[in-house]
Design a protein around this nucleic acid. Structure first.
Length: 474
RNA sequence: GGGCCGUUAGCUCAACUGGCAGAGCAGGGCACUCUUAAUGCCAAGGCUGGAGGUUCGAUUCCUCCACGGCCUACCA
């Protein structure tokens, strides 16, 4: 059966409805959520939803009707609804959206069912839903036509409902801790707050290039200068880099700042926030992830970044020869990297990161890789910073914020001298803001998509983003 | 960007070393007033992702293209 033939058959049914003087695309319909219905409920109830299956039996039929809240079996009986409505029922298809009125009863097999007394069609399907039993498996179609995925794949619905729940829990948690949710620009004259290639756009009236934000950090910290003490933004940021199971060009991040705090406070907040979410959702501190389990019991493991290298026999991580020897001992390719920090980063990614399954904080980083972080007390070459790893993924990054404008400017200038493919401009406006005085503060960023991946057991970021970026078909 | 793999009916999948492309579901017809992957009978549905090539003959082998997946690189 070709797609065109199928569509023609549906179109013929649409015309049938119209020939009866009935508009098949209806209007407002008062109804209640299906999930709230129980056998004890007496009298007429009104529901609406999509017909998912039809089991016809001559002069009667059972259907399953689904709304956002759930699914219920409904029973159409010619005796009950009469000839006219039964004829209309015959012109319903799987996939049609209907409004139904009737009474609840329990079938002989013990199933809660709505005995239909009256119904209206609210939307006629012209396409064909994917198969009821296997659902929609083709990942490409699932991403391109997410609406179909949501209709027929319950697992997919659960993932996105859980994502929404997680975001609500984050907001509730932060709001009750006194944090203010703010919105800062997504179009930046200077890309900053992270190391990434930006997307460029153009404002016609001002005739100026603008960059889609790669991070909201520098604007949120301007708010600290302005006297807002606890702020957060659940932000979409944009990075013009490759796409992978861990990367979508636009992604969701939580960034928050707490005046008069530091990275330690951010560490406690991260532990409390994420373990709270895990406990609320799973009623347990342990969850399945891939072939393993992740244990969220507090307190989480803490490892100094400098101590990561000891197991490789590196006494002094500033000694490039020692690092390179480790690479050759482990038969790892240095991939042409010469910079000490790039080499260490690569070594970390290859050997340490994949093993950080239970939540683990890596603490105290070299200043060269952290231009916005405050120095470690008494150690001007290191900073107060942590990264959080869960399930082998980098989930969060936090530090004590650098609030010294002169030091900040010096760091920016030093950063510009390091080799990079990315545009580097000193954000003088940000420096000026710091000159008016920013309180000491702790700052935290959490990758929301990745956190949702961990909590839903998804191995690809595309499975937790409703509409991941794909190349247009043909 | 590089490597490997995939693309067959609306959906889910078959088709041995190259030999007439099959099924289930959905859709159509008939029967059926407690089914739930309803059931029984009947009929229909395809330029095998696209373009070339090899061959008597290509879903199958080769080349190119498109899209996707996984790995890899940049990044979070």
């Amino acid at each position: 059966m070709s797609e065109d033939t199928l569509k023609q058959e549906k179109k013929a049914k649409l015309d049938w409805w119209k020939s009866q003087g009935i508009e098949p695309y209806g209007r407002k319909f008062l109804r209640e959520p299906i999930s709230g219905l129980t056998a004890e409920r007496k009298g007429t109830v009104s529901i609406a939803g999509r017909i998912m299956t039809i089991r016809r039996h001559g002069k009667a039929a059972f259907c399953d009707v689904m709304d956002q809240s759930g699914k219920i079996q409904v029973y159409f009986k010619k005796d009950i609804i009469g000839d006219v409505l039964f004829e209309r029922f015959k012109n319903l298809d799987v996939g049609d959206i209907v409004g139904l009125k009737g009474e609840l009863f329990i079938t002989h097999t013990g199933q809660l069912t709505l005995l239909v007394k009256d119904f209206v069609i609210l939307s006629k399907i012209l396409g064909t839903l994917p198969e009821k039993w296997h659902g929609l498996r083709d990942v490409e179609v699932r991403y391109r036509k997410r609406y179909l995925d949501l209709i027929v794949n319950p697992e997919s619905r659960e993932i996105f409902f859980l994502r929404i729940k997680i975001l609500n829990m984050i907001r509730d948690f932060l709001n009750s801790a006194g944090y203010l949710e703010v919105e800062t620009p997504m179009m930046h004259p200077i890309p900053g707050g992270a190391e990434a290639r930006p997307f460029i756009t153009h404002h016609n009236a001002l005739d100026m290039d603008l960059y889609l934000r790669i991070a909201p950090e520098l604007y949120l910290k301007r708010l600290l200068v302005g006297g807002m003490e606890k702020v957060y933004e659940i932000n979409r940021s944009f990075r013009n880099e490759g796409i992978s199971t861990l990367h979508n060009p636009e992604f969701t991040m939580l960034e928050l700042y707490c005046a008069y705090g530091d990275y330690q406070e951010m560490m406690e907040l991260t532990e409390n926030l994420i373990s709270h979410i895990v406990n609320e959702i799973f009623k347990s501190h342990e969850i399945d992830f891939g072939d393993t389990k992740i244990d969220f019991s507090l307190p989480w493991k803490k490892i100094y970044w400098e101590d990561c290298w000891k197991k490789f026999g590196i006494e002094n991580w500033k000694d490039k020869q020692q690092i390179k020897k480790v690479f050759s001992d482990l038969h790892l390719d240095t991939e042409g990297k010469e910079d000490i920090f790039e080499l260490l980063d690569l070594l970390f990614k290859r050997t340490i990161e994949p093993e950080l399954i239970d939540p683990t904080f890596i603490i105290k980083f070299p200043i060269e890789t952290s231009p916005l972080a405050k120095c470690w007390p008494g150690e001007s070459s290191m900073v107060e910073r942590f990264e959080l790893y869960i399930g082998g993924l980098e989930i969060a990054n936090a530090y004590s914020e650098l609030n010294d404008p002169l030091e900040q400017k010096k760091r920016f200038l030093e950063e510009m001298e390091r080799p990079s493919e990315r545009p580097k401009v000193v954000d003088e406006d940000y420096i000026e803001a710091l000159e008016y005085g920013m309180p000491p503060a702790g700052g935290l960023g959490i990758g929301i998509d990745r956190l949702v991946m961990i909590l839903t057991g998804c191995l690809s970021i595309r499975d937790v983003i409703l509409f991941p970026l794909l190349r247009p078909k043909q």
